[in-house]
Design a protein around this nucleic acid. Sequence first.
DNA 1: TGACTATGACTGACCGGTCAGTCATATCGT
DNA 2: ACGATATGACTGACCGGTCAGTCATAGTCA
Lengths: 231, 231
Amino acid sequence: MARKPTKAATPPAVRANAKDSAHAGNDAVPASSRATRAAERRAAIVDAAMEEFIARGFAATRLDDIAKRAGVAKGTIYLHFKDKESMFEELVRTVIVPVVTRLTALPPPAGSVRDLVETFASNFLKEVIGTRRGDLVRLIVAEGPRFPSVADFYYREVVSRGIAAMRSLIELGIARGEIRQKNLAHYPQILVAPAMIAVIWQSLFARHAPLDAQDMLRVHLDLIFGERSTT
Amino acid sequence: MARKPTKAATPPAVRANAKDSAHAGNDAVPASSRATRAAERRAAIVDAAMEEFIARGFAATRLDDIAKRAGVAKGTIYLHFKDKESMFEELVRTVIVPVVTRLTALPPPAGSVRDLVETFASNFLKEVIGTRRGDLVRLIVAEGPRFPSVADFYYREVVSRGIAAMRSLIELGIARGEIRQKNLAHYPQILVAPAMIAVIWQSLFARHAPLDAQDMLRVHLDLIFGERSTT
DNA sequence: TGACTATGACTGACCGGTCAGTCATATCGT
DNA sequence: ACGATATGACTGACCGGTCAGTCATAGTCA
């Protein structure tokens, strides 16, 4: 106790900063039920946390910094998350799930297998490579061993699904005669390896030697499907 | 606080435990010049540090643990390294350089390009994939962004060299007609991508789904060079 | 509708534990 | 015996997590 022994009346101004909502324009000031504001704050915390975790890694990230970036007091974080660790885990889920959902939604069964794969690659490029999401993937690689639950989740929700999807695509390609290498179906990892490398490369070496991920992926597909007749 | 304010005379017995050399049998007690012993200790510290950094990451690793594992007092570490950070940097150099040296030493210009590449892959498999060194690579990926000097070093000494070596191998393969895809020379990353993926996979997902890296690499080479006639 | 109360979201000073780095002291090699 | 080497107790900064207190908003009643 004995917090603030004197100073019964707290400075009035301070709270003001909350009014114009700290972060860039999103909400009309009034349009906020409690629930809405809570959701906004939670989102702000998740964003801030992602930024900080990516920049510093789990252990070196300070909750104080996350709070400051989110425009929130440290205590507020604990209204939304049990502790630092579960915040990290939930963050991964929150960010990853929508991406997987979006990427998995490959509706058009039209065209060749190569077109299918190319569409997928193109989406992956836009959604992941070189984005904050890509950095998140690197972060998962980095922290995975220390967070078995995160690694498990990631394997279950992303890796195993991705591998399975790629495998069936490969098998289709083989069946249709678009892919020569029969054994490729045993190692769908080979199909996605360059994409993963691109993610990591952009995170680590982009400033040493920029990489044209799109072109690299194209060359890789040429390798698997044979060179394209048209450009 | 109030750490032991008095107590000028420290208990005498305690220090005794150091005499019988804490860790398992390594050194015949007498056979050691100063320089030799110093080198041994330094090596022990590097080993211990690698182990701990791999297991916990940079920020979460405690110098006390490294010291204990190395069978050395914490202060001793500071006789060999300026601080935690430069210890990490030197560790990376110390471990990486010999591997690169060994891997770069590909003397036999005999045989086909495929044989050359296969030898390289085989060495890489033995020296890196699934070893402590592989974990180190993952660690560099993990900590790289926070240690520009490490990332720079790694790019300069490993990545750019590796890429260059692979490129000239690819160009040779193209010149000799072993490799169809001319554009492959633009992206040597494609050649090594599966190997890198294997490194990461072993670190993260081996317990979920073991990966036969050797076989995967073989399939990948089949993809690039065409299926092998012989096994 | 306007005044009055209840609720719980939010704050930030504080606590306690942890750990990188220091240094007085002890031990060893020559 | 004396400098070089090693030790580990100690310090002080730092940071995750807590909680008493505040106040905007929702709910209630006349």
